[in-house]
Design a protein around this nucleic acid. Structure first.
Lengths: 230, 230
DNA sequence: TTACTTTAATTAAATCTTTATAAAGATCAA
DNA sequence: TTGATCTTTATAAAGATTTAATTAAAGTAA
């Protein structure tokens, strides 16, 4: 999130500076062009995720840039223009622009519309929001709620799954029993370490080859547990 | 193309009439609601492709409609509002709206922005278009609304079909009961897991050889259901 | 009507908690 | 270092609780 590279095509230095400041503050990577020629150059050499395009450029009309981009890629394009005629907006939007802002515009609106555009591309690429953890021959797919050992899917109870997820999220680190208990049973739960031990025994029976000699879930006596992560 | 059904949520009869005329002239199918209540009602009963939403509604705030819709589906929403404060725009766009137009707006700009939104959903749906699902000896033809087991066509009730479609679309993943309920009955529906269980029993009787030992629709106790996908 | 959906009641199953006991590790005096 | 003792952890099994499946009956809409 927030690491998208945005190309700003605008000849007014003042406005460009202003936009650059706002974008970088939000965590985006900025790239700038003063004219159509440079913009197209940057587009083929850099990995741009979104374009902010002014229509009034010194060399070509911004519409030509839009046309060239659309021949070639589906990068979202937000037009920023001083032309406020409806016909201009319609033409640009039908030419493939994703949004159209008229100058002067507020920077918070611009940023919100950038977020909308990025949401759209993320939906296209069907990003996996939740990670898939893999350690040794164990695999935990949190998104789809699946656990595999040596490629074979094994059933975990809800609490076993939750416990294993906590361990995976902190792989390599030692978690205190109290910490784990609080994460599973919530705060206000007594220090019922016995319940955790029982749960742990059941989980180990499924995770480990030999539960008596754990290879993954290591006990740190007097402290808690740790998932081996080499 | 041009046969999308558009829901217009707006209490001003004048504006609604105006928009209706424009939409129908463009070949869209019009559907109208005066308030939030009716809007949600229509959303669960009709197959809506796009929503034009006024924020100033008589019963609830339009933002609540937006929130409910987003809990449940990815239908594009274009806000049409007389509130022209930047903060309102940012809030709505971040809440999941796809565009924001301030009244008074020109009808040609509205139509252009509708075309942009529809372009987006068409891009989404052509990328992951799978009209006929097959798993084991089950076949689901969503396009023609047919279900086959071992080549033999079986009748499913509308809700059974919808449920099976959801399962097929997420084959291999575990779907929570709450998630399934929302997808079938729509937003604002209580956590009536019992209705789902009954529906599931009926579906299993048709899908499974032996409903007592399901081979396809697996129960993940404490979580939800999963369609086996190997 | 007829087919479908929802509600309700009963039965069944899986999961969670508790308890008892065994095993492993730590401590300390001689 | 050794062995007695205490502390901590592991496992198994019984009981309690939660969750799901099934069936039948009542309500709804075409």
């Amino acid at each position: 999130m927030g690491e998208e590279k945005i190309l700003v095509v605008e000849d007014d230095k003042q406005i460009k500076k202003f936009i650059r400041y706002a974008l970088e503050k939000e965590g985006y990577i900025y790239s700038g062009a003063d004219n159509a020629q440079d913009a197209l150059e940057i587009l083929v050499t850099e990995d741009i995720q979104l374009i902010l395009l002014d229509l009034g450029l010194p060399d070509f009309d911004g519409m030509e840039v839009l046309e060239k981009v659309r021949e070639w890629a589906d990068i979202p394009v937000i037009i920023i223009s001083s032309r406020d005629q409806d016909e201009d907006k319609v033409k640009a939007l039908d030419q493939g622009a994703d949004d159209y802002l008229t100058k002067p515009f507020s920077i918070i609106e611009l940023l919100a519309r950038i977020r909308v555009a990025i949401r759209h591309i993320n939906k296209l690429s069907t990003d996996n929001l939740k990670p898939i953890f893999t350690i040794g021959n164990l695999k935990l797919d949190v998104e789809n709620h699946n656990f595999y050992r040596e490629g074979e899917r094994l059933h975990l109870t809800p609490m076993e799954f939750k416990l294993l997820e906590i361990l995976f999220k902190n792989a390599g680190k030692v978690l205190t029993t109290q910490n784990i208990i609080r994460q599973i049973w919530g705060p206000g739960y007594g220090n019922d370490t016995q319940a955790l031990r029982t749960l742990m025994a059941g989980l180990r029976r499924k995770v480990e080859e030999n539960a008596a000699k754990p290879q993954y879930i290591i006990t740190e006596i007097g402290i808690g547990y740790r998932l081996r992560d080499e």
